[in-house]
Amino acid sequence: MRMKFLSAVATAAMLCTLAPAVLAQNVAIVNGKAVPKARVDALAQQLARSGRPVTPEMEGQLKDEVIAREIFIQEAQKQGLDVTDDFKVQLELARQTILIRELFGNYQKANPVTDVEIKAEYDRFAAANGGKEFRARHILVEKEDEAKAIIAQLKKGGKFEEIAKKSSKDPGSGAKGGDLDWAGAGNYVAEFSEALSKLTKGKMTETPVKTQFGYHIIRLDDVRDAQLPKFDEVKPQISQQLQQQKMTKFQEELRAKAKVE
């Protein structure tokens, strides 16, 4: 009898010794079911991956969230919601989404955009958008005779800005007195660009310029060297753009190789 008592005491002592270790692996016991600490770690990792910083102060909130989820899950299972057809369909869709996300994430890790690629893209942008920028105004009308009449009016001392506000059919610039702000010649259609490039500062076109939009009277107010953003200012945007291009190419290659019947 004494031996049985001592054995029971030893067993109880051993369980008491193991209890702290078991509890250290779990954050709580909900209705008799252990909630492992790994769930808190997984939730923290998910937040970190989404860009939200996980601070030590958030540990309690994450623990409460995991416990609440376990409570709700148990109730949903009690109601049999985890065996419905709708749940199975949603679960499969979620599985597909996560797996595809992992595929793309793995590709991005293996194929990062390099600084060399970013700089090369910036240089191409600078080459295409360098040169001169023009500060111009224009008046857009539908008919050539109307444009000629406005040119005659301007030559007699008419105010370009006032006529533009009154007569221009361009809703964007008309209200601003025809002002088109600074832009390279390549920003405009060919006919407009050609006429603009031939003007000297302060001069306007002597004859109407016809484009697909109608007839223009153009005045060049100023010229300057193109003002390009500095490399460091646009580096993040270029990196994102190149990464998206790589991802698009990767997706297109997978589709091209797939045998779809």
Score class of each variant (00 low, 15 high):
I98M: 06
Y215N: 02
K210G: 00
P36W: 02
I163C: 02
R101H: 14
T200Q: 15
R124G: 07
L154F: 01
E75C: 09
R101K: 14
Y188S: 00
A195E: 00
R219Q: 15
E102V: 07
V54G: 01
T17F: 13
D225S: 12
G157F: 05
K249S: 12
L199D: 00
F192V: 11
A10T: 06
Q244D: 11
E65D: 14
K201H: 04
A149W: 10
A8R: 10
P53H: 05
R52P: 01
E65M: 12
D179H: 06
A258Y: 06
K33E: 14
A28Q: 04
T248R: 11
D232Y: 03
K4M: 10
P36M: 03
K119N: 12
S7W: 09
G174K: 01
L47N: 03
E252V: 13
Y122E: 04
G32N: 09
I67M: 03
G131F: 06
A19I: 11
T11R: 06
E70D: 13
P20N: 07
Q212S: 15
E146C: 02
F125I: 07
L62C: 09
Y107S: 01
R135V: 04
M204S: 11
M247R: 05
Q245I: 02
G32W: 09
E121R: 14
Q74E: 13
L18S: 09
S50E: 15
K88D: 10
L154R: 00
Q96F: 13
Q240G: 07
F231W: 01
K33A: 14
T97F: 07
G172I: 10
F192L: 12
G186T: 09
F160Y: 05
A110R: 13
S193A: 15
L99Y: 12
L23F: 10
K249R: 13
A38H: 04
